[in-house]
Design a protein around this nucleic acid. Structure first.
Lengths: 205, 205
DNA sequence: CTGAATGTTCAGTACTTACTGAACAAGGTG
DNA sequence: CACCTTGTTCAGTAAGTACTGAACATTCAG
């Protein structure tokens, strides 16, 4: 099996090139995740799940493709599931579990942002209390901080709502009839286990 | 000067209590800044400038209040100026410079967020190119990522615009006639120096 | 000019945190 | 039951980065 046809070699070169393109993509998603405060490896996993074929991948797949340790993959998939960016799915008759991008994953990130905005608004309120006996001139800085985030708190959900409508419009353009990946296969999403860990993060310090 | 009146002691206790409240506030702004990917010390500076009286503070003030090194303050104020969250001001007849919160600082943070959104949209496009010969089902994940961020790219500026209007409405409620902190005093903002460093970051590696 | 006040730069450190790898569960399968 | 496959947990490390402190500029005062 030493000799290969020209076609085979060519096909391999193309595959090679694509592999490089794909891993670059994965790496960049990793960097973007870091930019929004999430671990790079979580971004790599998410990036790979964005382009993987099939869209559901096992832990073993991820370990191999991303050249990372089992431990890291296990921890990071758990994180991604916890923030609802991916979900765990199982195939009938298969022992191992698979991971795939969760529908509306991106709205979930917006949700996280909302939490931050609320925190900023509350912080502004605390500041205004501290300066309660000061003249309005001095309080103006905090008032602006407060009003801005109160505004966003009101508007962001509306924006997200409008996005959901827009998206429905967009997806109905072409793929009428096959509404979603999950339902197009025999994949079953596994509900997130409400383990005690979720509510009480540190059982033993 | 060993004896003090009860009133003096009381006033000191109150001051002490307020100092604690203020430094808690400063610390929490620091934590929030970390949550959005900026150095904690930058957040502390910004936090202090939100509540300081007067609103403009010198490097020496910051070093003392925040118990940080001159080096750290210098570096972080530079960072904050670069991302337009604060500005450097000078007083006539005063040698040293002062820093204060820049008007519309918060819109600036939104601006930073826009950059990220654009990066995400471009990344989605790269992914779609990589999967250009794949069936729509597989491309759907990236298509959603793309559409979502394209949507936000379109809508966020409009939102910010509406915020500017809203803000004007809100500030006109009370403080009619004194539109802004800067103009209410003899403070002169110092324009950001367009040093070569800005365009070519690493002159000598 | 000398000295003081103000500000910058940068080498070294201290700290945080992601990641590895190995030991440990938990099922299935023969 | 022994054994393999799949997945989790955790101690230790590796790597990145914010921060310190000291040396170095710069400008003003006497």
């Amino acid at each position: 099996m030493i000799a290969s046809t020209a076609a085979e070699l060519d096909s391999r070169r193309i595959e090679q090139k694509e592999r490089i393109g794909l891993s670059h993509f994965v790496e960049e998603v990793g960097l973007m995740f870091e930019a929004v405060g999430l671990p790079r490896m979580a971004g790599r996993i998410f990036g790979w799940l964005l382009i993987a074929n099939p869209p559901h991948q096992s832990m073993g797949d991820l370990v191999e493709v991303l050249q990372a340790s089992k431990g890291s993959i296990s921890t990071m998939t758990r994180l991604l599931i916890q923030i609802s960016l991916i979900e765990r799915v199982s195939l009938p008759g298969q022992r191992r579990d698979y991971f795939q991008i969760k529908p509306h994953a991106w709205s979930q990130l917006t949700q996280q942002r909302m939490t931050q905005i609320t925190a900023f608004r509350q912080l502004a309120e605390r500041g205004l209390n501290l300066l309660s006996d000061q003249p309005p001139q001095l309080r103006q800085r905090l008032q602006e901080m407060h009003d801005m985030h109160a505004f966003l708190e009101k508007e962001m959900p509306l924006l997200d709502q409008r996005w959901q409508q827009e998206q429905q419009r967009l997806t109905e353009r072409l793929s009428t009839g096959q509404p979603h990946l999950t339902s197009s296969s025999e994949l079953l999403p596994i509900p997130v286990s409400k383990s005690p860990r979720t509510e009480t993060p540190e059982p033993k310090l």
